[in-house]
């Protein structure tokens, strides 16, 4: 056997709650991230990501408490992203209960933060989060939640992030995010071919076949899925069945 391809479920949180309630398999609308994370673990999700989109410092302050509550109940890896600026922030998030920490705008402003974090906590917990938008033949990197264009090109920036210590790349296509018409396969393949660390494809999943394509055609090691699961369009189990049918190695829950 070798590494399986991962299906990672992302929850947007603010003020310690999921931002948009999730309809979990026709059950009631659930707003507690911990309860949702647990349910997705039971459904077979390989990892959980909390993306903190808090607008204020007051809201953000609840994130570490949320990580703590989650870590005591979740027994698959938890990644936290959003608002991480320094290696000290990374340390606090890990200490609170995160297994990995996503760094985005702070790395663009000061790439050394990747090296400092990897040096203290190991590369395996440093996830470089990259938001990119297609422009001509390439992709431009955006910061601040995809709102601010930078001078960076996505493939070159991914390489630099890895050289500086990132152990994983979370790659989001801004063009595809929320559109549900499939991941940007060219972007995913370009970055996966340029770095030696695992690449997580994000943005654009509309169905299970899109996830399969991101892994098979896009060469991603993992795929991030959010809306289509939360809205009940498909399930973790259904996506994994499609992946298995395509011959991709995946983790199945023991019967």
């Amino acid at each position: 056997m070798s590494l399986t391809r991962r299906l990672i479920v992302c929850l947007d949180v603010a003020g310690g709650r999921v931002v948009k309630g999730v309809q979990f398999e026709a059950l009631r609308d659930v707003g507690d991230p911990v309860e949702l994370a647990e349910r997705y673990e039971q459904a077979g999700a390989d990892e959980i990501v909390y993306l903190d989109i808090s607008a204020s410092a007051e809201e953000r302050a609840t994130l570490l408490d949320l990580a703590r509550r989650t870590a005591e109940r979740l027994f698959v890896p938890l990644t936290i992203g959003g608002g991480i600026r320094t290696a000290d922030d990374v340390g606090r998030a890990l200490r609170a209960g995160a297994d990995k920490v996503g760094i985005n705008s702070a790395a663009l402003a000061r790439p050394e933060v990747l090296t400092e974090s990897a040096g203290r906590f190991g590369a395996q917990c440093v996830v470089a989060s990259i938001d990119a938008r297609r422009e001509g033949e390439g992709w431009r990197v955006y910061s601040h939640g995809g709102r601010t264009p930078t001078e960076r090109e996505a493939v070159a920036w991914a390489r630099e992030c890895v050289e500086r210590g990132a152990g994983e790349i979370l790659l989001t296509s801004i063009d595809r995010d929320g559109a549900r018409d499939g991941y940007d396969l060219e972007l995913t393949r370009a970055v996966a071919g340029a770095v030696h660390v695992p690449v997580i494809a994000s943005g654009g999943a509309g169905n299970a076949a899109h996830v399969r394509d991101a892994l098979q055609t896009g060469h991603a090691d993992a795929a991030l899925v959010a809306g289509i699961l939360h809205d009940g369009v498909t399930t973790v189990g259904a996506i994994k069945s499609v992946l298995a049918d395509a011959g991709l190695p995946i983790r199945r829950r023991a019967a």
Partner: peptide, 13 residues
């Protein structure tokens, strides 16, 4: 291994 770090779920023998 081709990908380092080794991150994810792998078989145990």
């Amino acid at each position: 291994s081709p990908r380092v770090p080794h991150i994810g779920w792998n078989g145990v023998e």
